[in-house]
Write a protein that binds this DNA or RNA. Structure first.
Length: 272
DNA sequence: TAGTAGACTTGCAAGC
DNA sequence: AGCCTGCAAGTCTACT
């Protein structure tokens, strides 16, 4: 499912689990996710109380107090198709993990393509796994940090913004949307951007993500958040997935090109 | 070193 | 219907 907006929607829907204790956590599949998870890792969660769920970029960082009184962390990345389901209403061959909680709640990790992962470790695991990540969209130094990276090298602004070490949490959908909102052509070399344009990009990134979160995320393919309901922001996407349709601003046909192996959608008249 | 293809994985849709 | 090709919310590795 996941760019930052979908991950944040997921995080908020998991907050009812705070304060609950893990009775046991089990593997439902022998297939490995992107990172292998040992049985001992899941065992560490038995009896652990969930105290907080944070998000950094597209990563969810779960903070527990272990049964032995030692704090521990669980890091979850949803990859392309990962979902966390509270009290899953159905079963799937792609259900990989299940946590049983006090008071009878269950949480299922489902991931068709298995590009995501779940990791359990000591305090600091989440920080370690996101150490090279760029600023969050609501970081007031975002524009300054992105500008510093933009000036180095020759890559396009699209490639720049897709790089998690430049700006955290952005993916193909919201980069396309933010570039459209600021009228910047996706193939513009990043070093040519004016500081004013990068500040405008910051505004656009915040705006599109805030509206996407409010709408429950974008449900392309079959994104479902924790309680199984889809998001509706795909209805508000201006260019992503709309090749051949008219630009909502000028009517020009929206174009699709390939950059770094990913499809970029843009309006050649509005974005220069 | 920076930047770009390729790989990983499964399912779905379009085209023949 | 059946088969084939291409494409998908991400990121890591390997090569130029």
């Amino acid at each position: 499912m996941p760019e930052l907006a979908e991950v944040e929607v997921t995080r908020r829907q998991l907050l009812p689990l705070l304060g609950l204790t893990v009775a046991c956590a089990e593997k439902l599949s022998d297939k490995n996710l992107r990172l292998p998870l040992g049985k001992g890792d899941l065992g560490r969660l038995s009896g652990a109380r969930l105290d907080a769920i944070d998000r950094r970029g597209k990563y969810l960082i779960w903070h527990f107090l272990g049964a032995d009184g030692v704090p521990l962390e669980m890091v979850v990345h949803l990859g392309m198709s990962g979902k966390t389901l509270l009290d899953a209403a159905d079963a799937s061959p792609h259900d990989h993990l299940r946590w049983h909680w006090s008071q009878g709640a269950t949480l299922t990790y489902r991931d068709v393509r298995r590009f995501g992962f779940v990791a359990v470790g000591d305090v600091g695991l989440g920080t370690e796994m996101t150490a090279t990540m760029g600023p969050e969209p609501w970081d007031e130094t975002w524009a300054a940090q992105v500008a510093a990276k933009a000036k180095k090298g020759s890559r396009s602004v699209k490639a720049l913004l897709m790089d998690q070490s430049v700006a955290a949490g952005l993916g193909n959908i919201y980069v396309c949307e933010a570039l459209f909102a600021t009228g910047i052509h996706p193939e513009t070399p990043a070093y040519k951007l004016k500081n004013k344009q990068i500040e405008a990009l910051h505004e656009a990134v915040q705006g599109v993500l805030e509206r996407a979160i409010a709408a429950g995320g974008s449900s392309i393919q079959d994104f479902k958040a924790a309680h199984g309901s889809p998001g509706y922001f795909q209805l508000e996407l201006k260019v992503y997935g709309r090749a051949g349709e008219g630009c909502p601003a000028c009517g020009e046909e929206i174009r699709a090109i390939k950059q770094q192996g990913r499809t970029t959608f843009f309006c050649a008249r509005c974005q220069r």
